[in-house]
Design a protein around this nucleic acid. Structure first.
Length: 229
DNA sequence: GCGACAG
DNA sequence: ATCTTGTCGC
């Protein structure tokens, strides 16, 4: 079945072929059903990288106030690191741990924000898309830097953005978003079952006082085992 | 061959 | 990603 998706001991060449095949299953949708909670996912490492630490934070929607969310649930999964980091093959290193964390979740979220790219990937299957396909849930890729694509400098105001273009056909694969004045922009792209416009909309609506949207920011903090800011 | 390269 | 102190700014 989809069991082979769990055979993360794929050689790079096989992994790339799998990405090409799976990319065709990614579905862009304009809107979601009723959203009651949004999850943020991020992976951290311990002991020099030997241990992979996956964190999932589920927040209630709508927020209690501007940028203020109630935490519904938090899960951390720790396990041995199996794959090295290879640009373009990040999902094979991080998704297994993320899935293990989701299996422990009591409430499945209606939308997931992942630290990394969605379709803004050489083969249109970044970690957010891969996770979304596996869970069959809407996902958004929220990365702190660029993997591929060309773009101009977004405006200086929060909410300003510039399209992320790639390929010979100038395909729009994401957006470079100014999430906060005076900081490097975020790279937002659809993961699965969501359009770019919807993805951007959700990320902006989840922005609090910092650069990262709350779901990703809290998951990042938990994955890196930092208690504060 | 050279440069780029999520986390 | 992670290793790490102080420091500039609101």
């Amino acid at each position: 079945m989809n069991r082979h998706l769990h055979d993360w001991n794929l050689a790079p060449r096989e992994a790339i072929a799998l990405q090409r095949r799976l990319a065709g299953r990614v579905e862009p949708e304009d809107r979601l059903g009723e959203v009651r909670c949004i999850a943020g996912v991020d992976i951290g490492f311990e002991q020099g990288g030997a241990i992979t630490r996956a964190a999932v934070v589920v927040l209630a929607w709508p927020p209690r106030g501007p940028g203020v969310f109630d935490v519904v649930e938090e899960v951390v999964h720790r396990g041995p690191t199996r794959m090295p980091y290879i640009p373009g093959l990040l999902s094979f290193r991080e998704v297994p741990a993320a899935l293990a964390a989701f299996e422990r979740l009591g409430v499945m979220p209606d939308l997931i924000m992942v630290d990394g790219q969605g379709i803004a990937h050489p083969r249109r299957l970044g970690v957010a898309s891969h996770l979304g396909l596996w869970l069959d849930l809407p996902t958004i890729g929220v990365a702190k830097s660029r993997l591929c694509g060309r773009h101009g400098e977004p405006g200086p105001v929060r909410g300003d953005w510039a399209p992320l273009i790639d390929g010979p056909d100038d395909e729009v694969i994401g957006a470079v978003l100014r999430s906060r004045v005076g900081v490097k922009p975020l790279f937002v792209s659809p993961g699965h079952r969501l359009s770019l416009a919807a993805a951007l909309d959700w990320v902006i609506r989840c922005l609090g006082r910092t650069k990262l949207p709350e779901p990703t920011r809290l998951a990042d903090r938990l994955a890196s085992r930092r208690g504060n800011r």
